[in-house]
Nucleic acid binder design. Sequence first.
DNA 1: ACGGCTGGGTTTATCGATAAACATCGGCGG
DNA 2: CCGCCGATGTTTATCGATAAACCCAGCCGT
Lengths: 358, 358
Amino acid sequence: MARAKRATLKSIASDLGVTHTSVSNAYNNPAKVSKALRDRIIAHARSVNYEGPNPAARSLRTGRCGAIGVLFNDQLSYAFTDPHDIAFLRGISSVCEEEGANIVLIPLQNKRPEQRDQLAAIVDGFILNAPYRSHPTIRQALARGLPTVVVDFDAPELSSVLTNDRAAMQAVVAHLLALGHRHLAIVTFPREEGTGEIRSLEDDFSDESYVVHERMEGCRDAVDAAGVPRSAVLVCETTNCEDGGQRAAAWLLRCRPELTALVCFSDRLAYGALAGAASIGRQVPGTLSVTGFDGIDPPGGMSPGQRLTTVRQNACEKGRRAAEILLCPDKEGTTSIAIEAEFVVGDTSGAAPEAGKQ
Amino acid sequence: MARAKRATLKSIASDLGVTHTSVSNAYNNPAKVSKALRDRIIAHARSVNYEGPNPAARSLRTGRCGAIGVLFNDQLSYAFTDPHDIAFLRGISSVCEEEGANIVLIPLQNKRPEQRDQLAAIVDGFILNAPYRSHPTIRQALARGLPTVVVDFDAPELSSVLTNDRAAMQAVVAHLLALGHRHLAIVTFPREEGTGEIRSLEDDFSDESYVVHERMEGCRDAVDAAGVPRSAVLVCETTNCEDGGQRAAAWLLRCRPELTALVCFSDRLAYGALAGAASIGRQVPGTLSVTGFDGIDPPGGMSPGQRLTTVRQNACEKGRRAAEILLCPDKEGTTSIAIEAEFVVGDTSGAAPEAGKQ
DNA sequence: ACGGCTGGGTTTATCGATAAACATCGGCGG
DNA sequence: CCGCCGATGTTTATCGATAAACCCAGCCGT
């Protein structure tokens, strides 16, 4: 059964002896066509299995297509393992549902670089939850000149939804310093070309993602205020998942047993770090404090009674607001929204052990 | 800063005094244009912020757009709370990443019915994980006549990815019957127009979703084989989330205290049912057995030590295979794949209490 | 009796690309 | 020296719709 040539506005029109404009109007502009003709048209269209105008053609002509593109900088298949990203998508989807918009998930091009294919997405705008401007796909998206909302991304010229990462992180570190911790390590996300060596807060983070940069600034705010030297705070990067956190923690604690606190840049890392710490016999919060960032539910079967000390941010709300800015613009021009993240003390941070030891 | 009129193939061509076809070829058909000209074109295009041909126009002309549409029958914002659906999407996305395809998430039209707007998605094919054919959006998708893969859906004319729900469910119920249970209730998903009354396995489920129908058949297979009357197995419907399971369990166990086993059609329901049972003092598996379906991780902080008796199915694999059928077709015609779900005995099912009581 | 309005259609231009057929030209085998 | 080929461009048709301008009959008020 070779697929029959599909009906078009024109074919329907000529079947019925009317003009294609009338058929178009029957679908889009019912007021411009008599009820009788409209019924005749719709009935005939149904009978030849025509379910409305071709979306690509319509989109070309009107310049709108009813979809928004969402770009993560991570792999999509990663995003679908990360509760934060999932909640973000849930927020976006709730608005899109309301507005009847489709969501186009756009994987980054990570194929062989010579392939450099074009960003084919047909969308009316973008939500970028992507820390790096430099990626070719992101560049292409920005070059389209479509309405765009960035999330946790430094782009003053665009609408944005931002979190107070800096202040929140400052609160975390201040909390640990107040508990007497002096040997801290930050567990952060990998750079594009990370070497993996241990750095410290003295180093330069201005090339890293907006989020990392802001959080590092927050850490500095806290240590500077406490008079602790930046060099005393180590920085270690690892992939953002439970496994990465576990490996990083185990390794750090073995190399630098004097550490008493791990400041993780995500809850996933933190939950992993808890497992890593347990694996080499460090007790939390007795001999080690661990903090996270995000406020997600603990992974299944993990640390049931214990609540993580973390920064709670509402990823769903971030998604929702971003989608709202794109789909329900109150006004021309750009909009910027700040979402407050909240520092919450849990059961994984406590007084530094033997404060006088050093 | 009014948005400058965007560059097009034609404008670039006339800027450079060449024909628009050459510009098109520079992007799509490098072999057909001299290296010198191509470089000149790309350089100029860059300088006027042109990042490649307009996707809608290209899609209209070529008939392809590099995206696949995914339709759930539930709300999208629900799908992003369900580990099964998320894993399914992860599977799809891993293939799409590989193939460089975009994913269009299409919310069902649930606005005012008079709105009956058209399915605007611009896609090359569909993955339908949608139990009901009757929904207008699903109808429109099917009417497009594009390559389509259905998942857990009864459509013999299309490619499909199916699970052996029936046999798996049969195993679950046979297991419970073997443990001596004679008063069972099935906790299932809501019908489109459910009334909420308690039914039994005697009732008719042929109008319900494919998945529900198959699983009910599996249950019947087991009870019929054991000589247990179908009327002895209750059927109760509730929304598919932990809360729904909890409410349904609490209510069922209060109305029908003689029940000793709850057969839940999803793990989310089952985890909810465990909470519901606990809330009214039933011990699992001592005085009540609970089974699930899916094999997802337990929700955060829930029943840490206890493993659910359930049917493990690989939702990620389902998504992957569906996407592969769509994006990497080996041959013409339709393909059907079966994915085996596996019954696993956990700690939530045990011998019926006081087998001799009744 | 006549100009203006309105409901219901039609004509024509256009959205921005790709595809296929066609032109031009230098080189090269016979 | 001729005819053909490959490399490089150009012309023209087309994908399937929407928008804007236009046309026309009937009706209305004056």
